[in-house]
Design a protein around this nucleic acid. Structure first.
Length: 539
DNA sequence: GGGGACAGCCAC
DNA sequence: AAACGTGGCTGTCCCC
């Protein structure tokens, strides 16, 4: 992060010039929104090493100061009535000094360029203000500069990932869908196997009437509830876990229907038509789109690909996918944040939950109890299981950190991630309700802040991972591409001969993220990377 | 016919 | 076993 606005500010103008400057000195480009400017640069063959995304940083600074969360896409509103279309960006690097030029609007301007419509002076003013603001914040939260840099790097990675796309075999996808659902329907309507299940459910729930039309629509919870009621079965919902407890012949086909219908509507042929082009699933990623700093997506549902569909993600011939995820990231983050010596010791174990079970319960085979107990503590479960009590006794500092975060939230306070990402405050009127509702709101707010410190700090770590990995992959080869990132896991698509180098790049990036974000606290975050051909082969 | 609330399930 | 955090997405249902 530069500490001053470079003297060499210049409007750039033709993409070729920008590319030349980038190759010569890789400055930190300053612009309004990466998502608006960077796709056109990539289209023109210019890959940028570093940037400062004013909108993303504005979002971080706003919440830091106690303002409501504003997703980064809209953190900087555009001035009204602005006329000419121009791209404003500049570099803060003196070495990049060039005569003032203008990008996009000239007679020989690149028609592919479009963007945000601010003047350069306003851009410079915002940047200078942000730098001064960041410098102030860093006095209290030294990690904030890293947060800002990683957030901007994440923005670059997100655009590149969306452009590269996730290798997606439509052939395998078709096969999976056909196996599960039957052939693709000609027009609308349900695929054959889905229709058969729907009719079976209907016949079993409304046996008194028969005919081509369904008496019970399995997609309608109200319909299903009424039908079960007629059968003498009273349900409070049609959730899968509740249905599983009911003994009725319609339950099994209904559960199967729900499972398959979900795949059909959310990841079926329609989804493929919309999102997969030429063997690549192109999603739109939104770094910082979640209040905790996790990434979101807008369209395509890239962060919710069902596990059965992972078989569709396959490397090109001669390529591999290098997959890695940080196992048990959140409990490891908790160990680091709380500096609980016993819990830090447990992070040495590849399976942290077994270590916790051994230390707190004296029984390594109680792994699952320990896991559920700790997750429940991090999410704020009401029930206090014996495992939770044992964890509290054995790891008091760790559990106390969670309790304090919860108390802060219940009292209307704010909490921050390890790097300084800040949760938004409650609505000013949040307690202006009847007392029992006020208590419920207070508890809910406590669960939010309790989880925020963990989830947001895990997101800090993950963004640092992505930033470091991106840097290393750029140095390695244009053909080694980050193609997927999901909270704590990455997929790199690379020529097979680069597999080892990519594995090393991922391992190095993980170690770097741990050192940068968590410092020297002795916490281990394993990030085992392995080359695979199909995403289904992971783990 | 479009918007919004709600239900339900997918991911972490 | 079933209630405990962050989301996206799609269906139904009801309203305008």
């Amino acid at each position: 992060m530069a500490d001053a606005v470079g003297a060499s500010v210049g409007e750039v103008t033709r993409v070729d010039d920008l590319g030349e400057i980038e190759r010569a000195s890789s400055p930190r480009w300053v612009w309004w929104r990466t998502a608006e400017i960077y796709p056109a640069l990539l289209e023109a063959g210019v890959r940028v090493q570093r940037c400062h995304d004013l909108a993303a940083v504005q979002s971080l600074l706003r919440t830091y100061e106690g303002e409501p969360f504003v997703p980064p896409q809209s953190a900087l509103s555009e001035p009204a009535g602005s006329g000419a279309v121009q791209i404003s960006l500049f570099t803060d690097d003196e070495a990049a000094s060039k005569p003032s030029r203008r990008l996009g609007a000239g007679p020989d301007g690149d028609p592919a360029m479009y963007g945000t419509y601010f003047g350069l002076a306003e851009l410079r003013r915002h940047y200078a203000e942000q730098l001064a603001h960041i410098a102030r914040v860093r006095k209290a939260h030294p990690g904030f500069g890293l947060l800002v840099a990683a957030e901007s790097a994440a923005g670059l990675a997100a655009v590149e990932m969306g452009r590269a796309g996730l290798p997606w075999s439509t052939e395998i996808h078709d096969r999976v869908l056909t196996d599960l659902l039957g052939p693709r329907p000609q027009h609308h309507g349900r695929p054959r196997k889905l229709q058969v299940l729907a009719e079976e459910v209907s016949a079993l729930l409304a046996p008194e009437k028969t005919g081509p039309a369904l008496q019970v629509n399995p997609d309608s919870p109200a319909d299903v509830l009424k039908a079960f009621k007629r059968q003498g079965v009273t349900l409070t919902s049609t959730r899968a876990w509740e249905l599983k407890e009911v003994e009725h012949p319609a339950v099994a086909p209904l559960l199967r229907y729900k499972e398959l219908a979900r795949l059909h509507v959310a990841h079926g042929w329609g989804w493929q038509d919309q999102w997969v082009r030429q063997g690549r699933f192109h999603a739109e990623y939104v770094p910082g789109g979640v209040v905790t700093g996790r990434w979101a997506t807008s369209g395509g549902g890239a962060l919710q690909i069902p596990k059965v569909m992972r078989a569709c993600v396959v490397a090109d011939p001669g390529y591999v996918l290098v997959a890695a995820d940080a196992g048990q990231l959140e409990p490891r983050i908790l160990a680091a944040l709380s500096a609980d010596r016993g819990m830090i010791a447990a992070t040495a174990d590849a399976d942290m939950y077994t270590a916790l079970a051994r230390q707190a319960l004296g029984r390594p085979e109680a792994r699952n109890e320990a896991k559920i107990g700790l997750l429940a503590a991090m999410y704020g479960a009401r029930a206090n299981t014996p495992a939770m009590v044992a964890l509290k006794r054995r790891f008091p500092q760790a559990l106390d950190l969670l309790e304090r975060a919860a108390r802060t939230g219940e009292n209307g306070g704010i909490v921050r991630s390890v790097l300084g990402r800040t949760c938004p405050p409650p609505e000013p009127t949040w307690q202006e309700v009847p007392p029992e509702q006020a208590l419920a709101r207070s508890r809910a707010r406590g669960r939010f802040t309790r989880n925020f410190v963990i989830q947001a700090s895990a997101a800090d770590w993950a963004n640092a991972l992505v930033a470091g990995l991106r840097r290393r992959l750029i140095a390695l080869s244009d053909r080694a591409e980050l193609v997927f990132f999901q909270h704590d896991e990455v997929l790199v698509h690379a020529p097979a001969m680069l597999a080892e180098a990519v594995v090393a790049a991922i391992a190095d990036s993980g170690a770097e993220a741990t050192a940068l974000v968590l410092g020297d606290r002795g916490v281990r975050i394993p990030l085992a990377a392995a080359p695979i051909t199909s995403y289904a082969d992971k783990n």
